[in-house]
Design a protein around this nucleic acid. Structure first.
Lengths: 326, 326
DNA sequence: CTGAAAGCGCTTACAG
DNA sequence: CTGAAAGCGCTTACAG
């Protein structure tokens, strides 16, 4: 205890907590700071939490940390949290096999709030009822369980992709749809269908695919191998799927983008690692995390955060071109 | 407090802490459990930490969370931690611009130990001197600061890549070397040079590259565009660099693997997302995280963990082949 | 301007 | 077998 080196416990707390102005003399304050520096003193957070009844810790529930996208969401949330003396604890859904873990051990009891992605619905179910303030990410804004929602303008992104392809002259588009029952993917499907439906003679058909390169490749091979006129463009629900679609095209002897155009969603590093580089809808993952954390902080302040919808942007690259003359 | 619903505080603590056998009657124990269930009682972790002087929290220091590799390291560490009632807090090094954050705010004071990657050296410097138990990942085993080290057999991986290429008939290999001053990359360079040096007439030249697809591409273009006999194989320090190398080859009109072979390190999802799929040295990232956490737990038990070296495996895929006849 | 005291919710000897 | 009490290190009224 820094008390040994000067004054009383209360004074130390005041000075180090920046609440001393007009209550402690400048001389004393400086003495306290010097002693703290000397001793390398750090306040005990457990004691502070106990006293304050808050832990300044948030739980981020994500489907899996091994995907670049959610790693970035975390990064954004964490940065904002740090600026407010908050910490973010991750709760990645148990992926694959393995015993389901208790999300509250050891987190729950020392949590102030939860930020959750709609894709981590299962994990979230365990957290529900905790009565903790909840901010949902990329989710149905009408979900009553969430005190606030931070969304991406996903529908607009799907429309931008459709408009890009339509303007290029494509009329037969296939949608490689993520086989995940989540609000964000339903929105993509609906917006895409509507946008394409507005152009006479244009059609979309949807093909479900698990979220992996391999399953994307298989789904694309199904679509492209089907009898009847072949689609000239593949709109994929994310970049991973799009990478799989490109592999499928190549296997079938089709060139991207000359014979078939491909678009993705996310703009992961993968989008520019593959060749040709992917035309994709960039989702500002870090901004999502940051906005989620801000909303949670607002909630903890007893105020009502505004629902946010972040804009989204199509990045045209080398995987799209006019359809083959034929 | 569950006390209201039954007995004394001490009894509740004993029962819920599974320390009651022979000290509390079965009847009382059951009554306590029932009451806890009823009230949805959760012990306050801050109070427990304060009392026990331990927080059951570890800090994982990594260079950046946005890379799939470290996301997996975290996943492994987290899984082990959870099995022991421990939490893992991430401290990603400040990447790019932005104010350097204080790694101790709010983590430090409530940390029991640190697990750190050698690639996060800068961030670690801030943590040093904290006097916390430290487990280093993929680092120089002679580093005195670490109480334990968890390593990958990186040298063997480099040797496997070299042997694979040499067996295929390659004699001129170039090394796209990560431009990061870290033990793990120095080991790769040395092991590769030694392995190639053992074969008469075989040569390696190293070309530094920043760890991105774009910088990998540029470095590969420098190597391949140089006057004199062109290398027939490119050994890259990671998969990202290898993806860049493949793009460079294609830009120069060279086919992978017919004209030039490429290998990577890591075996990220990226390795099979690109076309052709990458021959690469698979590093068991999750196992590294898990072993790191186990070592830290051993340390916290007052025992001395053994240094670990995890085996590594070359995965031959489509980016390597015999050199062109010529 | 500064200090003594209470109390946050636990766990762990110590009595009984 | 069970309870009363101390104490972990803070912060915040409350005195002085």
């Amino acid at each position: 205890m820094a008390r040994a080196a000067g004054v009383s416990q209360a004074t130390v707390s005041l000075v180090l907590g920046e609440k001393w102005s007009g209550r402690v003399s400048e001389r004393t304050a400086e003495a306290v700071r010097a002693a703290a520096r000397e001793l390398g003193y750090r306040p005990n957070l457990a004691a502070r939490s106990l006293r304050l009844g808050r832990t300044r810790t948030a739980l981020l529930v994500v489907p899996a940390l091994t995907t670049e996208f959610f790693a970035r969401v975390y990064t954004g949330a964490e940065r904002v949290a740090a600026g407010h003396g908050f910490g973010v604890v991750l709760y990645p859904s148990p992926e694959g096999v393995g015993p389901a873990r208790d999300p509250f051990d050891p987190a729950r009891a020392s949590l102030d709030g939860v930020i959750a992605s709609s894709m981590a619905a299962d994990a979230l179910a365990a957290v529900r009822g905790g009565g903790l303030p909840l901010v949902m990410l990329d989710s149905d804004p009408d979900d009553a369980a969430a005190a606030a929602t931070v969304n991406l303008d996903i529908a607009d992104g799907a429309r931008q992709a459709a408009a890009h392809l339509l303007a290029l002259g494509h009329r037969r588009v296939a949608h490689l749809a993520a086989a995940v029952d989540s609000w964000t993917f339903r929105v993509r499907a609906r917006a895409l269908a509507e946008a394409v439906g507005e152009v006479p003679g244009a059609t979309v058909c949807a093909e479900p695919a698990g979220l992996s390169v391999e399953e994307g490749r298989q789904a694309a091979e199904r679509v492209l191998g089907r009898p009847g006129p072949r689609p000239t463009a593949l709109v994929c629900d994310d970049d991973i799927l799009a990478a799989g679609a490109c592999k499928a095209a190549r296997r079938l002897g089709l060139r991207v983008p000359d014979d078939i155009s491909v678009t993705g969603f996310d703009d992961l590093a993968l989008a520019t690692a593959v060749d040709p580089e992917l035309t994709t809808v960039r989702l500002p993952a870090e901004a999502v995390g940051a906005a989620g954390m801000r909303a949670l902080l607002t909630l903890l302040d007893g105020e009502t955060p505004q629902d946010t919808t972040l804009p989204v942007e199509l990045i045209p690259r080398a995987s799209t071109a006019p359809p083959p003359a034929n």
